[in-house]
Structure formats: C-alpha cells, structure tokens
Amino acid sequence: MPLTFYLVQAFNGITFGALLFLLASGFTLIFGLMRVVSLTHGAFYLLGGYIGLTALRPLGNFGLAVVAGALAIGLVGVLIERFLLRRVWGQPLAEALLTFGLAFILADAVLMIWGGDPRNVPIPRFLRGSVVAFGLFFPKFRLFTLLLGVGVALFLWWLLACTRVGRIIRAGVDDLEMVAALGINIRAVFTGVFCLGSMLAGLAGVVGGAFLSLYPGADAEILLLGLVVVILGGLGSLEGAVVGSLVVGLLDTFGKAFFPELSYFTIFGPMALVLALRPRGLFGRV
C-alpha cells in the first residue's frame, strides 16, 4: 500500500483519538479522585450531543452549541453527584449499579425525545472542506477536533499542576482521608470534579455529533471505547488518557482498514494483553 494511505489513516486515527480523549479525560479525572467508575459517561456524551443539536438552531452558532451541551451535562452531573452518588459513595457495587441504571434511564429519555433515526450536528461552514498538504486532503473538522483535544489536555494539565484545586485533587488521589483531616471540604471538590468530567462528556458529545453521528446505541459504543482507553492508559492518569486515546484511535482506524471483520479484536486484543502483563495500565498507579 502506498505511503499516503498510511498517512491518511494515521491522521484519521489520531483525530479520532482526540475525540476519545475528550470523553476519557473526564472519566479518568473522576475515577482518579473519587474512585467512581462513572458508567453514565456514555449517556452523558449522547445527551450532550442531542442538546447541542437542539440548541444549535436558536443559538445559531456551533461554538455556542458546544458550550450549551457542556454546561447542560455539567448541571446534570452536579445533580446526580449531590443527590444520588453521594448516598452510595464508597460502595463500588452500589455506585456501578447506580451509574449503570442512570445510563439506561438517560438513553431511554434520549430515545423518547429525539427518536431513533441517526442525526448529525451540522459542521459549521468555516470547518467544512479540507486542508491540502503534500497532495493529501485533511478534513478541517478533524483538525479542529485535534486542536480541541490538545487544548483540553493542556487545560487539564495546567489545572492539575498549577492550581490549588489541582493540588487538592492530586493529594486526594494519594490519600483522600488525610485531605479531609487537614480541613478541606473534599465533598465540595468531588462535586466540582464530577461536574467538570461531565461537562467534558457533554462537549465530546456535540463534537462527536458532527464527527460521527448521534443514534441510540452510540452511548454504549463510545463508553466501551472510553473504557478501553482508560484501562490501557491506566485509570486516573491524565498522561494515560492521552496515550490510551491515541492508541485506541489508531488501532480502531487501522483495524477497520486492514481487518474490517475483526474490528473488535484489534481493540480488545491489545487491551487484554496489557491487562495480562500490566493490570494497572501503562501509566496507572492502582
């Protein structure tokens, strides 16, 4: 196969990885601090996408629709954390059942409101078409997704490394109880982190609605890929989410190009291998 084929596939894989990162970064942030595996994350993605789609007409601007999707899901996240998750926090089985059950409820609500036909968030005019370089076509919207992913990664890195909230989050990952015993209201930090993680899922949904499309079942598919990302990279690790997203994006893209009939194996095979050799993932600590 010609080199250009590999270049195009690599570009597609990396940009798909950027979309996965938007989702997985929030997921891993929540797990890192709260030790909660938020199985609602896929449903947050889909709901955020539909909300962005609906908000696009009145707002008239793709950027504002992304913000609307993110804010709406952030609010949903805060309500779920404060009124439901908080009651079962520290009981992994109850947390899993709660977040899983909520995922079903949200998926049904989405089906009721927006129906079962696939919908696309229209790509704004200035992001349509491609950039031509080396005689190859690079779709502008994919480039935009890549930049967004890099931007979110830099923002999260700054938040964790350079701010007081970030220090508290990192300390909480080390020893949650001691953070509380030093007089910090860790519950308030939980709510904030869950809100941020949820917002990222909502944001990913609106972008994903233009990148892929929105349909019942897209929530479970993206959640599955997100889980593979964080298992590969290591639950709770930001670097892990970056590397895991790129690996899964590339595996998915090349897998589908070379062995379309084995597309699940090309993702889950390497994941199983990593789990067997290094159960905490590439960058994980637990």
Binding site: R164, R167, I168, R170, A171, V173, D174, D175, M178, V179, A181, L182, G183, I184
Partner: peptide, 21 residues
C-alpha cells in the same frame, strides 16, 4: 491530626504538601 504512618502526599512536593491545607 499527625497520623500514624505519616501519610504524606507522596506524589506532591514538600512545598505542595505544606501549602495544600
């Protein structure tokens, strides 16, 4: 509280441990 077993925040610098709370 100065807990049994120290329980410093291992991945934070000394300075970050001190200014955290």
């Amino acid at each position: 509280l100065v807990p049994q077993g120290r329980r410093v925040f291992r991945s934070l610098s000394v300075l970050e441990n001190l200014t955290l709370a």
